[in-house]
Simulated scan of single mutants.
Amino acid sequence: MKNTTKTLTYSGLMAALTFISTSILSFPSPFTGGYIHIGDALVLSSGVVLGKKNGALAAGIGSALADIYLGYASWALPTFIIKALMAYVIGYMFEDLGNFKKTGFITAFYSFLWVGFGFLVRGLIASNRIVDATQDLITEEVIANETELLSTVLSTQNIILAIALLLPLALFIVFGMSRFKPSIAMHFNKISAFIVAGSVMVILYYGTYGVMYGNWIIPVFSIPANMVQFAFGLTLATLMLPITLRFQLPKEEA
């Protein structure tokens, strides 16, 4: 009973902190009609403290409630799923940080996912099958014309592709070094877990927008903002690790 009460208390607290950090400290994102925030730090921390299942529920509920509170109710369900999946990834990887084989496999999967995503976006932009729904951006004077939009989209996509190729390479180099130094390995496993979770968020939000609105150009603008948002969240979550690890529930409770 005591363990159940502790788990419920921690879960409620993390859900509340996720809601507050997402809804209060948020700023509008003009290209997607959404917002950017620092709530990802608490989403990641939910996975660290509560484990994969309870962490997923706390992160998903807190983030979905923030969407509803800020007037983005149509995004509540996708947000719940995406944020819950982020926390689940963290909980799954943090429950066995000493398993370098598992971390290596997940890092490899993440690398192929990012590379595939980069080429997929390039292919969508290069094809003539993209739905043209950019008039609203022109009307609102966010961009001057379609040529400017396409130019910005292409440059943004090139940045995404560069990251898709360089970041996995950097991770594999560090992973190779970590096999010879356990202290580096543990730090690598933690950071790798955060990066994988962030990749899931960026890719799934892009895909969700495309499916919901039938436009694959506009959500490209959200990718850099999502990556900056997540980078800040990753940094904050990393700085919070000495605290969150102290409150981490035992595996049998999580």
Rank of each mutant, 00 (worst) to 15 (best):
M1K: 15
N3K: 15
T4I: 15
T7S: 13
T7Q: 11
L8C: 13
T9P: 13
T9W: 12
T9Y: 14
Y10H: 02
G12K: 08
L13F: 15
A15C: 12
A16L: 12
S21C: 11
T22Y: 05
I24F: 13
L25P: 10
G33D: 08
A41N: 08
L42C: 01
V43Q: 03
V43Y: 00
S45H: 00
G47I: 06
G47E: 03
L50Q: 10
L50A: 11
L57M: 14
L57E: 14
L57W: 14
I61P: 05
G62I: 10
A64K: 04
I68S: 02
Y69S: 03
Y69Q: 04
L70F: 01
A73H: 08
A76T: 12
T79Q: 03
F80N: 02
I81T: 05
I81Q: 06
I81W: 10
I82D: 01
M86P: 05
Y92E: 13
Y92S: 09
D96A: 09
L97C: 00
G98E: 02
K102E: 06
A108C: 14
F112S: 08
W114H: 03
W114D: 00
G116Y: 08
G116D: 10
G118R: 05
F119L: 08
L124P: 04
L124V: 07
A126P: 07
A126C: 12
A133S: 13
I138Y: 05
T139V: 10
E140V: 11
E141P: 10
V142S: 09
V142Q: 07
E146T: 05
T147K: 15
E148V: 13
L149Y: 11
L150G: 08
V153W: 09
L154M: 15
I159M: 13
I159K: 08
A162F: 02
A162P: 00
L165G: 01
L165N: 03
L167E: 00
A170G: 00
F175A: 02
F175C: 04
G176P: 05
R179V: 02
F180K: 09
S183H: 13
I184S: 06
I184M: 15
A185C: 10
M186F: 14
N189E: 14
K190A: 11
I191H: 01
A193F: 10
V196T: 06
A197Y: 01
G198T: 03
M201V: 07
V202C: 06
Y205V: 05
G207Y: 04
Y213I: 15
Y213D: 15
I218C: 03
A225G: 11
A225P: 12
M227Q: 09
Q229S: 11
L236H: 00
L236D: 01
M240A: 03
M240W: 01
T244Y: 12
L249H: 06
